[in-house]
Nucleic acid binder design. Structure first.
Lengths: 196, 196
DNA sequence: CGACAATCCTAACGATCGTTAGGTAGGAGC
DNA sequence: GCTCCTACCTAACGATCGTTAGGATTGTCG
């Protein structure tokens, strides 16, 4: 019974931007409505609850990352760990840069979901991180990466990649393509075997 | 007129933990009071406003980073860019690991400050990031680092270092010392000149 | 003993919160 | 022309928010 019409998509976009700028808890239903030139109560013709708004954003963002990682893994199945990790990193960066606002909400506001939804996102997050961790562990075991701890390396890289959403500005000095190139380079180099 | 007694410090600690777990906006004065076994109104014997609580945490965290960076810069003045950056990174990681909760509040909740305080923190943050950026730019110019963009590299490293606060658990598998070593290694390698 | 400061209390204020109920305007399809 | 659906409205609900006012208790120091 989830509404998916054009109006609902506008509402999701406005909510995403306000959640990003002010946070979920500090954004009221009436704030969102005001940005859409309507009354707070009117939003309930489109949405069952405030949390449903957050859920729509977070769930879609999580799916975007999962699908991009699936695609990256498909395209590099059989390749060595370095290439597989490069594909994962590149896919992640592309999703972040395609919608930094949504990514920002996803990363910082999912904890405001309640009960099962929160647990579900935590689980998907863990599973997603495990892809990175295991690929890094593979690379370490074949000597392609410097011998670091795979769990730490995965956390390091993923938080750095998600951090892009906090500082990237589309109107900035560099195009998103060039930023993506730089970031992928930094991430892969952090695992390189030879240094100094 | 800022109270600095022992009781006030307890209040700051409890508030920091609740802000970290639930966010500033989703934490009420009465939540904080309940964790201290007192009534919400009683907190105002120690604190002028809810925002003052956030300010105390954020300001102290910002000062910790600044002082640690000052010390690191002092100890490596005259050294080459690689060593100077290493000292900055190590100092930052140590501050994060010394109090991940406070760091987490600092990084994610400072936007809830109003007016001048918010602007002041934004300025100090920019100045702090500039230290990293300029040290990296120095390293690039003398060929010690791979030719990446200094601004992107600084943002990449700093968000990765701040990210530690979101996943580090003191009761975890590794000691904070070992984690610090790994992280410093990852951060420095991401800038290394030779790779592949 | 008495003054004082620190600490916490109860009660209440006006504002705002998420949400529900019930109604209205306008266009689409028969 | 009538019905139905979509999209919005006004009004209000009970809860909770940050905060203030004023009083009680307690221990310290003279």
């Amino acid at each position: 019974m989830i509404e998916t019409g054009a109006r609902r998509r506008e509402i999701d976009e406005v909510a995403s931007e306000l959640f990003r700028a002010n946070g979920y808890a500090a954004t009221s239903i009436r704030d969102i409505a005001r940005a859409l030139d309507m009354q707070g109560a009117s939003l309930y013709a489109h949405v069952a609850s405030k949390e449903d708004l957050l859920w729509a954003i977070v769930d879609r963002a999580a799916s975007s990352f999962e699908m991009a990682a699936d695609r990256a893994a498909d395209e590099t199945s059989g390749a060595d760990a370095v290439e597989r990790l490069a594909a994962l990193v590149e896919a992640h960066v592309e999703v972040v840069l395609a919608d930094p606002g949504r990514t920002s909400v996803f990363v910082t506001e999912w904890r405001h979901l309640s009960g099962g939804r929160r647990a579900a996102i935590a689980g998907r997050r863990d599973a997603y991180e495990a892809r990175f961790r295991e690929t890094i562990a593979d690379g370490i075991s074949i000597g392609a990466f410097g011998a670091t701890d795979a769990a730490i390396a995965a956390a390091f890289i993923l938080t750095a990649l998600n951090g892009i959403a906090t500082w990237y500005r589309p109107e900035g000095r560099l195009t998103s393509d060039r930023i993506a190139d730089h970031i992928v380079e930094l991430a892969l180099r952090s695992l390189s075997e030879d240094h100094r």
